[in-house]
Design a protein around this nucleic acid. Sequence first.
RNA 1: CGGGGCGUGGCUCAGCCUGGUAGAGCACCUGGUUCGGGACCAGGGGGUCGGAGGUUCAAAUCCUCUCGCCCCGACCA
Length: 572
Amino acid sequence: MRLSQAFLPTLKEDPADAELVSHKLMIRAGMMRKHAAGIYSLLPLGWRVTRKVAQIVREEMDRAGAQEVLLPVLMPAELWQESGRWQNIGKELFRQRDRGDRDYVLGPTHEEAVTDIVRNHVRSYRDLPQNLYQIGVKFRDEVRPRFGLMRAREFIMKDAYSFHVDDTSLADTYEQMREAYTRIFTRCGLHFTMVEADSGAIGGDVNHEFMVTADSGESQVFASACGYAASSERAAFAWTPRPAEPEASREERSTPDQRTVEEVAAFLGVGPDRLLKSLLFYAGEEPLLAVIPGDRELNEAKLAQQVGGAPLRLATAGEIEAITGGPLGFTGPVGLAGKIRMIGDTTLQEGRNYVTGGNKRDVHLLNVRLGRDATIEERADLVTAKEGDQCPRCGEVMQVSRGIEVGHIFKLGCKYSEAMGAHYLDAEGKEHPIVMGCYGIGVTRIVAAAIEQSNDANGIIWPMPIAPYHVHIVPVNAKEPTTRETAEALYAALTEASLEVLFDDRDERPGTKFKDADLIGVPLRVTIGEKGLAEGIVELRDRRTGVVDRVPVGEASDAVRTRVEAALRTSS
RNA sequence: CGGGGCGUGGCUCAGCCUGGUAGAGCACCUGGUUCGGGACCAGGGGGUCGGAGGUUCAAAUCCUCUCGCCCCGACCA
């Protein structure tokens, strides 16, 4: 591509509305432009990279035996009502109505659509397993789109769905997908880790996320030396019970206007771990009280799993008062047994004297003993692991880091097949629900993640396999005849050799071209100038290291080809 | 949804407090000089100051409403 003819609007300055490096660089390098919050057009350069990523994904999915399809973006609401997600997914689901007032959704994911197809065409165990995938546009009405392509409302995703006769078959495919994902992210030149994760509204139990390591990542990852790794929504931790304390009698204490754990702990002069934090939620229509240690944060993902995935919301101050009798900030489990479902964190101990809200304005209770003053039968891990916590497997302190979620694989089981009636007949003619798995990759998010992970003060540094071009030719002075002829000849030779070449044939000053080249981030640059030509050489410059190799003009084409091929090979 | 910030040529911003001729740099067009890391000189085009209403002789500037964008929080398949 000749830069003189390319639509590649680069910017000298950072856009005012971008925060992340990847976002700034994608705008500055002319890869994309914004139309509205979370809605972008990909320009030629951005689309080239996206296609490269998609192609790697496609090759690896095909290699793993999956078949590509194209599912609709717009789907009838009925399918989503059948699966239950019409109700269970909240505001993130884009809903749409047609002229006849029929309801539709803009697909955020496509379990319903594939399941609808498979249930109509798979009757026999002989037809299974199947693994269908697509690469397409997804819509999510994000509460807060941000960070450019990292969290957009419209984005490109690869989603695959597998169908099986049993868990063993599912496990095989799950493993194949795990390997395919590892190859994909490796080929894309990314540093990543696989972690146990929360399955959210998609459902199912076993699932793993693939996280690209980056400080700017939105996800927190816990990992320990033994190999345990989990997202913060999922991460468990080991804990040691504190010694039991002598029983003491329950006591009311006036705590005027002391509502938060910090306030109450300071007011009473005790540690926050002495308090019980009681949070009133609604799981759909059902109110429930989550009780956790005062020094811990509630993990909504864990709570949601415990209550079966119904949408959760915190109760309003009015609802709290109506149910507990006391205002917000003075809630506690005492006296609520039988009135409301209570779930206690597993680390709560029978033998301790806790401080809790008194369900009365300005009153807290001291020396509350579980089992004596309040009974919480239902127990579950409800809190988020934190820095310094110990690994649930090996007991070592876990390392905390941040990551960008680029892939997520799930064993779904029969959630969708049962809800939507997708069955098959086994060899004995008996009917069973089809066992499912699903596997997603954020294609456009990979583009952003790759930049996030590989850039410097001057711009992007592409890994060769997803670089928009393999090599960038910069004639220092395009008007100087020898320079121009040499550059033209090299451009022709490399193009002829099927390399993807960006050729800066513009009549610009050298500084401008160098800056643009660094910004765009093509991994290999050939600089052709009078100085070098006088000695019969051109310069090959590595974008990442800045190292310059001087090669004779006659060998330039071969040298470039060798280096590009080597760079493509190492990461595939 | 709660809190905060910002909307002024294509981009980055000043001007607003204290009302009175719409500005700068970059980008763009013309001519010239220049040419190994975002040049210089001269000339030029381009903005109903997000929108609506109000106050005023007069509004980018003050008031009300509204829309959009960004950040923090909540949320996230």
